[in-house]
């Protein structure tokens, strides 16, 4: 029982950063832009968050700075993919390369070749249910985890499906010509989606450096952005289904960590668990097949003639 409770608590922790980024990617893809800059934006967010928190002594300043840097990264992606109409894979991967390089460059300049990686006092975990059985340990989470699951996700769902902005955003991702004809500024909506998305991706990265680790390392993001891309498709571009996917991923990840820590000799390598979510996503894509409800205008730059 204790094992299940602690595993569930760890699942929520592990899922948080990926879920934040995946919700960000949901916004951008719903508006018709695949943002492969996600991996770099998370890394940049993790770095900027750590850096600002370290020099200012305030974790919240760090988080705020990370979000702003993510918004700027999203706007840069918008400049290339929306205004210039450049191929989205190329501009996204270019952005990831740029932001990873910038973060590592700045990190090396600021912290040099310190023998031990610098660390900060991370965000504390809350425990609203105190010593109650099950609920107590399960509720021991970071405030950011609470915000992500209880505010960011429902808010994304409400915005996308029940607001005028969300309706326009989804329409821009499906049929930009028609939306334009109806007098909506396609470019502005895509810029907004990429800005929101970038902010959330960077927040996901900052969660890693400011809460989960309290440090910044080269491998801090290590492919979590690509997982988020997979989750968005797995979740059919729906915030709640994306959340479900992030929990499955967080669960397998937490499980393999526990199994490794327990030193169990498994007949299969623990990496199998790590690779599983990717394979499941590919399978989900195949099953959805031609019916996968990709936003129809995804990857297509919009040119107003």
């Amino acid at each position: 029982m204790d094992f299940i409770v602690s595993l569930s608590a760890a699942t929520l922790r592990v899922a948080t950063s990926i879920l934040l980024a995946a919700i960000g990617e949901t916004y951008t893809e719903r508006a018709g832009v695949l943002n492969l800059g996600i991996e770099g934006t998370m890394f940049f967010g993790a770095f900027v968050g750590f850096y600002v928190a370290d020099i200012s002594g305030s974790l919240w300043s760090g988080l705020l700075a990370a979000i702003i840097s993510g918004i700027l990264a999203g706007l840069l992606m918008a400049l290339f993919s929306v205004s210039f109409g450049v191929n989205q894979h190329v501009s996204g991967l270019g952005l990831t390369l740029l932001l990873s390089g910038l973060s590592l460059y700045a990190f090396r300049l600021r912290y040099g070749g310190l023998a031990t990686p610098p660390s900060i006092e991370p965000f504390p975990q809350l425990r609203p249910f105190g010593d109650l059985p099950i609920l107590g340990p399960l509720s021991e989470q970071y405030l950011l985890t609470y915000l992500t699951f209880l505010v960011i996700v429902p808010l994304a769902w409400w915005i996308l499906y029940y607001t005028d902005f969300g309706l326009k955003l989804r329409a821009v991702g499906e049929n930009p010509e028609a939306v334009d004809a109806a007098g909506v500024n396609v470019y502005a909506i895509r810029y907004a989606a990429l800005a929101i998305g970038g902010g959330l991706m960077a927040a996901g990265g900052a969660f890693l450096s400011l809460a989960q680790l309290g440090a910044f390392t080269h491998g801090i993001v290590s492919g979590r952005g690509w997982v988020a891309i997979a989750l968005v498709i797995f979740g059919n571009w729906d915030p709640f289904k994306v959340t479900l996917g992030s929990l499955i991923f967080g669960g397998t990840f937490a499980l393999q960590l526990r199994l490794q820590a327990m030193g169990l000799q498994l007949p299969i390598p623990y990496e199998t668990f790590l690779a599983l979510p990717y394979l499941v996503t590919i399978l989900a894509l195949v099953l959805a097949g031609r019916n996968a409800s990709y936003p129809a205008a995804l990857l297509k730059p919009y040119r107003r003639e």
Partner: peptide
């Protein structure tokens, strides 16, 4: 099935 996503995922 879109190759961008599948080829990307298989890298991981």
């Amino acid at each position: 099935v879109d190759e961008v996503v599948t080829t990307l995922l298989l890298n991981s």
